[in-house]
Nucleic acid binder design. Structure first.
Lengths: 212, 212
DNA sequence: CGCCTGTTTGACGACAGTCAAATTAGGTGG
DNA sequence: CCACCTAATTTGACTGTCGTCAAACAGGCG
């Protein structure tokens, strides 16, 4: 199997050290595996992805983190994963030690962790038991909900085909082919841009996503 | 695809409502999807698995919870997943509302959630990017570490082949075949029981698990 | 206008799934 | 203690979904 990392690697870890808000543009590194994990981050706007690279180049995106959630909170003193922005993003950085001191922060973190755990559980079901088609539909559905209830007929895809593939445990070719088939079957409609996709009938999409 | 639930379904949710420790034996339900989620559980000894059933019968085990970790902490007021014991298990049940009240508990929960998130991240990499063989080796390695540092040559598998399959996103046939091949290749050795497996050379196992 | 990167499509192969049968364990009762 | 019975596991033969390799296409930016 020869998968993943079909894109360029992100640049050096942008120095996000100051406490407080930091603005990064698209495709900037937030932290790298092996880096010191003395700080963690709250996403205030935008989105980041957390991923791991296997030594033969396979890449798995394990989480997409949206505003309100956190990333980079490791147990050990080194990050095991890499993290980079998917779009221009504002992060708030906290010292890990702040967790022990601030009740407010801790409460906020518990909420986020619960949320993330639940999302990860769902994603595990996708990866373990869903077909390529079901995974794609599930992701689009989630992005649709994430986008806020704007009765949108179109959803913006904040990620490239390769990133989608690496998140869904597929290849970019399979992602392309599957989207094409879904469009052909009218489950989706082509968006004005390729980073956008239309949802003619959300119920049909839900069915195709195999909501349990 | 026709996967999962090749075992009998667990029995009714055992009534684990009292606050405090509860002892359950093997293959007892802790909670069911759709059940009221006003309580969560700390595993004190034993182990449980958290899983989801898709409507066509596919099953995905999303988490194996060992002592010190928690399960059943949902965001909504209903469980989305099912949970049952893998072996005789002692659980401590807490009201969800207790979280807001007890700092000590909240701290403990943050630790557990962090731990679980990290494990889930690793598992996501397995499901998304690893081959059947790598997944099996990764699991055995994890069970070995979990078992405590007893320089063991043998590891107890607390779960059936079907449960392993449903955790690793494989079929039970693939699990069997893959273990057979690993034994043939001397990466593993047959245990005295089928619920036990030998590790002749842990480094070789690590290599086969594709530690990133 | 043309390159460069990301995306789409095609042809083919392989890993894992499906269906089915054989074998082995574990548990029970004689 | 042994024979039997049932469920779990193992193995086999074959199929299908998705991955691999490769080429064509399209969109964005200088």
């Amino acid at each position: 199997m020869q998968l993943g990392l079909q894109t360029a690697v992100a640049d050096r870890p942008s120095y996000v050290a100051a406490s407080g808000a930091v603005k990064l543009d698209k495709h900037r590194s937030v932290f790298l595996a092996g880096g010191e994990a003395d700080r963690f981050f709250e996403v205030e706007s935008g989105a980041v992805m957390v991923y791991q690279l296997l030594d033969d180049g396979r890449r798995q995106v394990v989480e997409i983190v949206f505003p309100g959630s956190i990333c980079g909170l490791a147990k050990g003193d080194e990050h095991e994963f890499c993290c980079e922005t998917l779009m221009p993003t504002v992060l708030r950085s906290h010292k890990r030690t702040a967790l022990a001191q601030s009740d407010v922060l801790r409460t906020r973190v518990v909420d986020s962790l619960q949320q993330q755990l639940a999302t990860l559980h769902d994603h595990t079901v996708s990866l373990g038991r869903k077909t390529a088609e079901e995974r794609i539909c599930t992701l689009i559905l989630r992005l649709q909900e994430q986008a806020g209830e704007d009765d949108d007929v179109a959803v913006a895809l904040p990620m490239s085909r390769t990133e989608i593939a690496d998140y869904l445990g597929l290849t970019l070719e399979t992602v392309c082919r599957t989207i094409t088939q879904l469009v052909r079957r009218k489950v989706l409609t082509p968006g004005s841009t390729r980073s956008e996709i239309g949802i003619p009938n959300i119920e049909r999409l839900r069915t195709a996503a195999c909501a349990a």
